[in-house]
């Protein structure tokens, strides 16, 4: 009963829109409303798929997106380890509070969070004014619309997706092998490298993919904080859809991005099942 119900909702809310997108990807652009003609209503050939690979525009955007997602996910996992292990060292009573503090930024709206970064980093922002007042710099540092600002915003947005699953896995781990390693002469970092890290590799992989998959489609953070020349897949799709009004091309790019992300999604599901 429940299974059929869930399948019905999935079909309605996930499969049906996906099919519409797939259908639009094979349509032909057209001046009018909607701005495309379905393939069987026109003799004009569909060009959206060949346009995707025609020049480096979409491929470059895709590569930049994957690179940003990779960097974000790797940094999130690398930061989550010391954070999770640090929280687990605190007395048990303090742990929920410390996790709460880490997730607290999510109590504030996304736009406000990004606005805060802009307020901090722009030329007349808090950081530049403080540095200029202290006499350390004369002209404001161009910090906004650059890769460091972009990475700060991405980490700020995605860190909890890596921290929470990794924390859960590390909290549930068997501590005895780590004690055995220390007992056998391993210094603390060696214990982490040879025992803790291999034991939590599956959880770290899942945490990585949990950040990587949504981050690959992200375009608001790069838009607000990132360098102007860094066109990303999400932004390219947005442009085609709203500015060029080439819905078939935007749909084809969306389907292509989903196709690229299918492999990591399936990998994540396998890691989660373990």
């Amino acid at each position: 009963m429940i299974r059929t119900g869930a399948a019905g909702w999935l079909a309605l809310l996930v499969a049906a829109p996906l099919l519409v997108v797939l259908l639009v990807a094979f349509a032909v652009p057209h001046d009018g409303l909607p701005p495309f003609l379905l393939p069987w209503l026109t003799d004009a050939p569909n060009e959206s798929w060949s346009l995707l690979t025609a020049d480096g525009f979409f491929l470059g955007a895709l590569m930049r997106s994957l690179w940003l997602a990779l960097l974000t996910a790797a940094l999130c996992v690398a930061l989550s380890y010391p954070m999770a292990l640090g929280i687990l060292r605190a007395v048990p009573r303090a742990r929920p509070w410390l996790v709460g503090v880490c997730v607290l930024p999510f109590a504030i709206g996304f736009v406000l969070r990004m606005g805060a970064w802009i307020g901090l980093l722009r030329d007349s922002g808090l950081v530049n004014r403080a540095l200029m007042a202290a006499g350390i710099i004369i002209d404001p540092l161009p910090m906004l619309h650059a890769w460091p600002a972009l990475m700060a915003g991405m980490l700020h947005s995605y860190l909890p997706f890596a921290l929470l699953p990794l924390y859960a896995a590390l909290a549930a781990r068997d501590r005895a092998p780590e004690e055995a390693a220390a007992d056998l002469g391993a210094a603390p970092f060696t214990v982490f490298r040879t025992v803790t890290l291999p034991a939590s590799a599956a959880a770290a992989g899942a945490a990585f993919l949990l950040v990587f998959i949504p981050a690959a489609g992200e375009f608001v953070v790069p838009e607000l904080l990132g360098p102007p020349d860094a066109l990303l897949a999400g932004r390219a799709i947005w442009q085609e859809f709203f500015q060029s009004r080439d819905w078939p091309l935007a749909a084809a790019a969306s389907v292509a991005l989903l196709g690229v992300l299918l492999a990591p999604i399936m990998l994540w599901q396998r890691l989660e099942r373990r």
Binding site: A176, E179, A180, A182, D183, L184, A186, V195, P198, A199
Partner: peptide
């Protein structure tokens, strides 16, 4: 002294072998 600098070894009740 921390465990790694003590001249004793321990055999754990759960054995605590390294599974990987």
């Amino acid at each position: 002294l921390p465990p790694q600098r003590r001249p004793c070894a321990m055999m754990f009740q759960s054995y605590a072998l390294f599974p990987h």
